[in-house]
Simulated assay, not measured.
Amino acid sequence: MITVSKLNKKFDQTTVLESIDFSVNKGEVVCLVGPSGSGKTTLLRCLNLLEIPNGGTITIGDKTVNFDQAPPSKKEIAQLRRYSGMVFQGFHLFPHKTVIENIIEAPLVVKKANRKTLIDKGKSLLEKVGMLEHIAKYPDALSGGQQQRVAIARALMMEPEVMLFDEPTSALDPQLVKEVLRVIESLAKEGQTMVIVTHEMNFARRVADKALFMDDGIIVEDGPAKEVLSQPEKERTKQFLQLLDDD
């Protein structure tokens, strides 16, 4: 489903990702964990080309983009992005559109799909994430957790093969975190392929098939989530998890 090989990324002269190699099989949930500034979010953004890598290759589905050659064309970027849906920390909903208008916007514009068909599908997805009763509300009338659940439904509207989550609960009050994690957990049970940047270790241990521990722009440890997050081999991983447990 996803294969990343020798991926590098620099901002000016600063290397933020160095020789990244990993793969994600169809139906797998992979969590990216590590300290702030370790490169997790940059890696996630590289997967759908919100950031353009400086070297290496990314394959998603049957599309491979090689960054050792010329920068990707707009067509290549669009082809790779069609495989993935992205959920950000800050929701990114349109404030002047209702819940249903927010989630049908992308397929309406990109796919030129039928509006009534999209509304019917949108209602089904809003029911799935527990937000159907809020269909006519605007984002400022919703809690952070509710906005994030709408953002998840919006990403699912494009029928992505892979869902990418960038710390989806980091902007939420603690009491709202569980409602978002429950939605993501239900997607995992349905077999949705996902790559999730998270600091929620108990959630990661429960949901993830694999975990990648990152530090200083490299993958320090990569393996089954229960092993990496509960019995890590690398000292840097142990130190990081110990700090979280101490908190």
Rank of each mutant, 00 (worst) to 15 (best):
S230C: 11
A225V: 06
E190W: 04
L187F: 07
D166M: 08
G223C: 07
F213K: 02
G191R: 10
L181E: 02
D166H: 09
E200M: 06
P232M: 05
F203W: 09
V183S: 04
E221C: 01
T169E: 01
L187T: 06
R182T: 10
Q239K: 15
V183A: 06
E167Q: 10
Q192D: 09
E190Y: 08
G217T: 11
A211Y: 05
D173A: 11
T198N: 04
E190F: 04
E200A: 08
L176K: 08
A208R: 05
F203G: 00
S186I: 03
E227P: 01
E235D: 15
V162H: 09
V162N: 12
K238R: 14
M214V: 12
G217M: 13
D215Y: 05
D216F: 07
D209I: 07
L176I: 05
R182Q: 14
Q239H: 14
Q231M: 11
E221M: 00
L172F: 06
K178L: 00
Q231R: 10
K189T: 12
V180G: 06
H199Q: 15
V162C: 08
D166L: 11
V228Q: 00
V180K: 01
A188K: 13
P232C: 08
M201T: 08
R236Q: 06
S230E: 11
F203T: 04
A171I: 09
E185F: 02
V180N: 01
M194E: 06
E221K: 00
Q231V: 03
M214W: 07
V162T: 13
N202I: 10
E233C: 02
E233D: 06
F213C: 05
E167F: 06
S186M: 13
P232I: 03
D216G: 13
F240M: 06
A208E: 04
S170I: 06
Q175T: 15
A225P: 07
K238H: 04
D209P: 10
